[in-house]
């Protein structure tokens, strides 16, 4: 659920656990899809947390976790320059949206 954004401040105490973005492959043959984010001190913990948080209902067969800080996002101000050139190239759009989240509940 979390697109990357920088926390505005860090309250005192122990350093907050970094934010990780979680990607889940729902079934074999589908690409990993962004499902949300979580906090963990390191990658191994993040993977365990992701498994428990995002695949409690058998939503996935494979998980990626990636430090949110490692993501470089395009700036919304350049949105048109960045994306509009692709707008007329429909043939480049594969089955992009249709990974129904939580297919297992259906």
């Amino acid at each position: 659920m979390s697109e990357y954004s920088e926390p505005t401040s860090q309250p005192g105490g122990a350093p907050p656990a970094p934010l990780w973005e979680v990607f889940v492959r729902a079934r074999r043959g589908l690409a990993h899809t962004h499902v949300g984010s979580l906090h963990a001190a390191d990658a191994e913990l993040a993977l365990h947390n992701a498994r428990d948080l995002y695949t409690r209902r058998q939503e996935g067969v494979s998980i990626w976790v990636l430090p949110a800080a490692a993501i470089t996002a395009s700036s919304p101000d350049e949105k048109d320059a960045f994306f509009d050139p692709a707008a007329d190239k429909v043939y480049r759009h594969p089955t992009f949206y249709e990974v129904p989240e939580g297919a297992a509940h259906l």
Binding site: M1, E3, E6, P7, T8, Q10, G13, P16, L38
Partner: peptide, 20 residues
Amino acid sequence: AGHGLYLYAAAETLGVSRDE
């Protein structure tokens, strides 16, 4: 607990940290 965490994650996209 899971729902709480999904929601904190949604709030974090608005530029506030969960710890805060």
